[in-house]
Design a protein around this nucleic acid. Sequence first.
DNA 1: AAGGATTCCGCAAAGGTTTGCGTTGACAAT
DNA 2: ATTGTCAACGCAAACCTTTGCGGAATCCTT
Lengths: 337, 337
Amino acid sequence: MSKRHISLKDLANELKVSISTVSRALKNHPDISPELTLKIQKLAADWNYTPNPLAMGLLRQQTKMIGVIVPDIVTHFYASIISGIEEVAKQHGYYIVIASSNESLQKEIESVENLLKSRVEGFIVCLSQETNKYDHFEKLNSNEIPLVFFDRICESLDVPSVVVDGVEATKKITRHFYENGCKRIAYISGPEHLNISKNRKVGYLEGLKECGLKFDPQFLVTCNLSTKDATRATRQLLTNKILPDAIFGLNDTIAFAAMKEIKNQGLKIPDDIALVGFTDEFHSTVVEPSLTSVTHPTFKMGQEAANLFFKCIRNGKGFSEKIELKADLIIRESTLK
Amino acid sequence: MSKRHISLKDLANELKVSISTVSRALKNHPDISPELTLKIQKLAADWNYTPNPLAMGLLRQQTKMIGVIVPDIVTHFYASIISGIEEVAKQHGYYIVIASSNESLQKEIESVENLLKSRVEGFIVCLSQETNKYDHFEKLNSNEIPLVFFDRICESLDVPSVVVDGVEATKKITRHFYENGCKRIAYISGPEHLNISKNRKVGYLEGLKECGLKFDPQFLVTCNLSTKDATRATRQLLTNKILPDAIFGLNDTIAFAAMKEIKNQGLKIPDDIALVGFTDEFHSTVVEPSLTSVTHPTFKMGQEAANLFFKCIRNGKGFSEKIELKADLIIRESTLK
DNA sequence: AAGGATTCCGCAAAGGTTTGCGTTGACAAT
DNA sequence: ATTGTCAACGCAAACCTTTGCGGAATCCTT
């Protein structure tokens, strides 16, 4: 097995100088004579020397790795956010290590443990839907390990975060429904401890009030974020004595499940029931009817989260900037009666 | 800034023993007395000691990192493969560092360079669509750095790879079309230097022959893999003097673009034109009509690729196992006349 | 010519871990 | 009393890099 990488020592041996001299020459240290500097730099270039990041990491006590924990990785939503994180990380010379919680609290806790063992310098996290206790994150916080939340955040922990304005977005949705003649607007929400569920509910209620509609509890159902349970939730709505004439789901998984179920029941979209999704996956445009949806600036969310992370590293403890991004409502066929 | 991680030295200092004793005690070395071993292990557990991977890496000259280069990361296809790779990598105590070539040869080359600088131990790669020269990979090969290709491979390089049987799959498609009464079967292909384009074309031609249909060059068009160019290619097919009555695309991006364009032209699927996709993204089921598609065992592809990688590490140079996975044709509405 | 200043480079430690080998002390055997 | 054996532990090198400090050689000054 030939030597894969060459070190300062190799250069030093070849040139019969000390390792420190080589190290200094490569950074143009004035202590080294111009001629020697040139000679060393030439050899380094010829031999394609690159510093060993492990040695540097050991010296500086940093791994240049960020742990990223997401509920899943195959969804466009998270994949796109990860891209955003990755872009900013790369600019700072950092790598990201991705772990998927699979929407499981247990796996989330394990991921934190494992990433900690790998000496990641900090975390960028989107909570799993099960997560309702936060000990594993509080531990990080008290150990002053940088932590940034995005999308699904823990409100009881004072850490930096980036979210979209769910209140505003759902208000828009509700008003949009109303302006299209809908009066019986239903909302399929997610687990109630999740900030996104709560915020969107607030916006929903406020939206109803603004439109002069009164809230009917039977139009508010919850589900976990699986397609199966979303289908069940939709069916629950459709077996009400009074049918809703508009439905929006917490995310697009729910919206698509709802769409299928509505069609299955022989109802027409948008004529019988208008439908709105959330997070605007690619499917939204290709489905029929195309789905009105709230676009999430996913890539930007990732970028901002990473930016917060690096601010966090620079500013040290106590830094807890919160960013709230605006989401746009993209109107398509599923709401145009 | 409190000390984040504790080291063997910390334990040694506390217990007034040497570092080497601590190290040995933690691995139950017989040289260390049982009592002392116990005491050391207890303190290590209490203080939550974990070995510093950087130090280990420096010692063993390994980073436990695999460089994964994909054309893009936000597609379900690649995301799912990455999941598969990640799962196997984790089992082996390895991490993956993901780089996206964005379908650009230039970025692919840069990614190889950068990952090499970070001392990844090897690569798992899916070629960018532009990639028609392979110097950057040959260099790896001659330096005995493990390299595995998946899906889009370089046939002139004798390295391990995992692909799906595109010939067989496209033969199935062609026959399926024929059995549903289609006679004018068109194929929207990708860049011609890509193995997947070539293989699928072979299957297409063989399939035609088996069905007793003769190949008409105007039914074979190519595009790069963008939605835009796929739309253009579709339009090209639809402006033929003779319209095709069946179309299949190299992948689902193309298929969806084709679907939109066909609808735009006021044609009906499958009645006027039957349509088949490739790689079976989630959209296939939600679109209308639902899309007949060739399912790719993406997760398994990732797993197999990672397995090959580790075999490669164990077996050293000259290892070049090739794996060919079978793909199933899932029949949905878009082909049922 | 002797002193100080300057130029140029090497030594060694630090970061954490593993491991071959050396060292120490106790005890048994001769 | 001397040698040998063995258990139990420490030293130091190696992996690679950075950097404060010390040292040697050269030059200039008086």
